[in-house]
Amino acid sequence: MSFILRNREIALAIIIALMVTGIGIYAPPFVSPDNISYVLDDTSILFMMVLGQMMVILTRGIDLSVASNIALSGMISASLAESSPNLPVITYIALAIVTGTILGLINGSLIAFVGIPPIVMTLGTLAAFRGLIVVYGGGNQVNASEMGAVFQGFPKIPILGVTSTFWIMVALSIGVFVFLNMTRAGRGLYAVGGNPEAARYCGIDLSRQQLLVYTLSGAIAGLCGYLWTARYGVAYSEIASGFELTVIAACVIGGVSIAGGVGTVPGALLGALFLGVIVNALPVMQITPFWQMAISGFVILTAVILNARSEKRGIKLILPEARRAAGGTP
């Protein structure tokens, strides 16, 4: 029992399972394979965004510009589809990823090398990137009919009962998991966030880590920019507005500590799944979707309060009896 309580991924998985079971009993169609596949597909973009955001938060940073990045990368990619609709789909995807990466590089280089605090930097680019959509597209909207079938078709290709979007997400999750757990640089992110001073002693360079995570976060947002516009068949300046908060919320729910150094890929994915299930369950439960925001706010607050409870305050153990009681001697 205590193991389950200590391991937040398992606790969260159990909560989600209970939730899904409960909803399934109330509304059986919710747990039909079709609907489950739909929910997974619908949550895929959130899954991916959460991975990028988590890497940033691990280094004690935050990237508020991701939703604007989605909108701008999506718009640039969709505009290419509008002007030349019959290029191989990889071209559109690559353009979106490159755009997103450049935007991430802008964040990363100013944060890492000029020393602008991440929250202010990405607050600025949150506004700037979204504005650039209008500067770039002249305020026009790219509609489904103008994008062409190649652009729109790809994310919806069914493979083994789920969409290609889902499989992209799976591949990305595995990639991020391998990076975070199996590479020196990935483990270095935990070191930098957990104890920047000690990381410096170990020869890990904070600036390079920052540049890396903001660029990766931007690249993932770029990819999601393509997927978002292609999936919903529209590109304009307001898409994904406020989505950055959903992403951060999913991270917090998934146990990623805003203080840095703590967070896992399964945890973050479960955090996103939790929100994804809630969003998709509301209509099934005949609750208006207007509840969504309030619920996610409530869940974030509950999650941070629970996190704070589990962290013990540092008390000094000086008295020999206190040290013995704390089990200092093995």
């Binding site: 020196r184 270095g188 935990y190 070191a191 957990g194 104890n195 000690a198 170990c202 150094g261």
Partner: peptide
Amino acid sequence: VMFDELSVAENIFMGHM
């Protein structure tokens, strides 16, 4: 001065895994 959230092995080998 080390990393509380990481394992013993990682604390030992951080920087030269």
